[in-house]
Simulated assay, not measured.
Amino acid sequence: MINVKNLYHSYNKDDKYALKDVSFEVKEGEVFGCLGPSGAGKSTIMGILTGLLQLQQGEVSVVGYNVKKIKSKMFNDIGVSFEQSNVYSKMTAKENLDFYGKLFDVETADSKALLEMVGLGDKADVKAGEFSKGMKHRLTFIRSMINHPKMWFLDEPTTGLDPAIAADIKDIIKEQQRKGVTVFLTTHNMYIADELCDRVAFIVDGEIRLIDSPKNLKLKYGEKLVDVEYRADGETFKEKLSTTEKKDKQRLVEIVENHEIVTMHTKEATLEEIFIKVTGKGLSHDEAVS
Score class of each variant (00 low, 15 high):
T266V: 05
D122V: 14
F184D: 02
P157T: 03
T92P: 13
G280T: 13
H188T: 05
S213I: 00
A109M: 10
F24W: 02
G41T: 03
I208S: 05
Y221H: 15
A128Y: 03
I203L: 13
M145G: 01
G101Y: 12
F237S: 12
V63I: 14
V253T: 15
K267A: 00
T108R: 07
E257T: 11
K150H: 07
K73Q: 09
D194K: 11
D98S: 10
T92K: 05
I276N: 13
L210N: 09
K238T: 11
C34F: 15
K174Q: 11
C34K: 13
M264A: 12
I48D: 05
K73L: 02
V228Y: 10
G41Y: 03
S72W: 12
G64H: 13
I165L: 08
Y100H: 06
A166N: 05
D122Y: 15
L52V: 12
T140N: 13
R231G: 08
G36K: 08
E254N: 14
K71H: 11
G29E: 09
Q54I: 13
V181K: 06
D77M: 08
E272R: 09
Q56D: 11
M190P: 01
M117S: 04
P37V: 09
A232F: 11
L185K: 01
E257M: 15
K247Q: 15
P163V: 09
R138Y: 01
K127W: 02
K170W: 03
Y230D: 00
V226W: 08
T243N: 07
V4I: 14
K69W: 01
E130P: 06
S72M: 10
P37L: 06
I276V: 13
G58N: 07
F82G: 04
E239I: 00
E287R: 12
M264E: 03
L120K: 01
L53E: 04
R138E: 05
V87H: 04
V262C: 00
L115V: 06
V278G: 04
S284E: 14
L49W: 04
L103N: 10
S81Y: 05
K69P: 00
V262E: 08
V60I: 09
P214A: 01
F141Y: 04
F275G: 01
F184N: 02
D286C: 09
E260N: 11
N189H: 12
N66Q: 12
E175I: 10
N76R: 05
K136P: 03
L154T: 04
L19H: 09
S144K: 03
F104H: 03
R251G: 10
H188W: 03
F24A: 04
R178N: 14
I48S: 02
D248S: 12
V204Q: 04
M145T: 06
H188A: 03
A113V: 15
K174T: 10
Q54E: 13
Q177K: 15
K42F: 00
V118Q: 02
E59K: 14
I276L: 14
N6C: 09
K267M: 00
K224L: 01
E116N: 14
T244K: 15
A109Q: 08
P157Y: 02
